[in-house]
Design a protein around this nucleic acid. Structure first.
Lengths: 240, 240
DNA sequence: GCAAAAATAATAGTAATACTATCAAGTATC
DNA sequence: GATACTTGATAGTATTACTATTATTTTTGC
């Protein structure tokens, strides 16, 4: 009994350590100075999420952000070259966070099909808050990803930035889903396309729920998860 | 025999009339002055497609376009309020054109399943040129839709612009696909989501083929059409 | 063929954006 | 207490995204 208690205590302490030290790693070339390394940096991240969510990425400027956090435009430029890089930082952080959730929530599942189902759950469900990161409003960041992520790669600089590794986390997340699809269904011919379609499609369906309801069937009572689980499982001929 | 010849002649003449008079209708509130109504207007459309394709929508300005067509910035402003409206015009034109292709190429097919298959073909295949519209480079316009369309609705003004009807053609196209899905499979619960996923997903897969090849299986030899046909037909339990 | 109207061009000007550069002030560190 | 580092303040530049005005050219209606 005491042994069990001690054992449990060790697990809990392990988890606490894991959680308290946990930081999502973003490619260092995306920033000039690591925003996690200072108070100002953390405030830049915290309030850029709030401000972009409020006024949209187009209207967002470093000047407005500076006014908001009582800091100077020029100081923000010491952390990020421009607002595009800041958007890359935010979306990278999001995909890193989602990847972490995906790994955590599927790690201990042995059945490939159950694993895949749980992965679909994590990827297509609405974003929920995570107390581990006090400076990040995950729900608003999720909205930013829905509304702005595609603008981060639909540019003339994609290929260069892709070579630099700015989209590596996003692609790695999709590779993980692809591999889970393959484990469930080794003969399926389009695992990467299916994985990317689900990840992109989930963002798209969430957008449609908010703005173009006539071209989606998703709603609060039947969220994207339902649609995508049915889609993937039927495509792979796996029974629900 | 003569009767038959006369009959054929009438059909051909009908088609010619149809084709020669054919214009894709774009919501009039998108422009200040109809670009199809003048030589300058046509040149604006023709060269905006070339220029946006070349330098991307972000770097595109009315000033550059003016220089390119030997015309003045201020003259272009008489046709379009701003470059966002011009993008709306171009993408509206594209979706109107694709809808016309969809209707033409599926109209005479009676079997709902064959009709749906042909619809998937039209929507997911690479864009091909259409000699009917001399001022439009359909292939480049298709590239613009892949790279820029989502920017036209991922804005803070979507809801207002949607109310104005700026996205009506796009939504109508998806409704047509949704209805074809329902005719093939009346019990399927997510026809609109499936239709919007295919339309958006097709653009996305074309983008991935060009820039993020590791997260797609699509390539010249196995284009998005193959993936999406398999996806839709399996989801609906229709045998290929 | 000419006057009126319409379309286009030219020019100028404004506010905002997206920065860069410089210098001053405050803070941390050794 | 000197030094390095961070942040703040100010100024300045080129470009963008327009608006306004006036001049010139083209179209058209009679």
């Amino acid at each position: 009994m005491i042994v069990l208690l001690l054992f449990l205590r060790r697990i809990i302490s392990d988890m606490e350590r894991l959680f308290s030290n946990l930081t999502i790693t973003v490619h260092p070339k995306i920033y000039l100075k690591d925003p996690e390394s200072s108070d100002l940096g953390l405030r830049i991240i915290e309030h850029s999420i709030l401000l972009v969510d409020e006024i949209g990425f187009e209207a967002f400027t470093f000047k407005k952000l500076g006014q908001r956090i009582g800091s100077n435009e020029s100081s923000i430029y010491r952390y990020f070259e421009n607002k595009h890089k800041l958007l890359l930082y935010l979306t990278n952080w999001y995909w890193g966070w989602l990847e972490y959730k995906l790994v955590m929530e599927t790690y201990s599942i042995n059945s490939p099909k159950d694993k895949l189902k749980q992965a679909l759950e994590v990827i297509t469900r609405p974003v929920e808050t995570d107390a581990s990161f006090s400076h990040i409003d995950e729900i608003k960041l999720g909205q930013i990803v829905v509304n702005e992520f595609s603008k981060s790669y639909l540019t003339k600089e994609v290929d260069d930035e892709n070579k630099e590794g700015y989209f590596a986390i996003y692609k790695r997340l999709i590779h993980r889903v692809r591999d889970m699809i393959l484990e469930s269904c080794p003969d399926y011919k389009h695992p990467a396309s299916l994985a990317s379609t689900v990840v992109d499609g989930a963002l798209h369906q969430h957008f449609l729920m908010d703005h173009f309801t006539s071209i989606t069937d998703c709603k609060k009572s039947s969220p994207p998860t339902v649609f995508f689980k049915h889609l993937v499982l039927n495509t792979l001929n796996i029974d629900a």
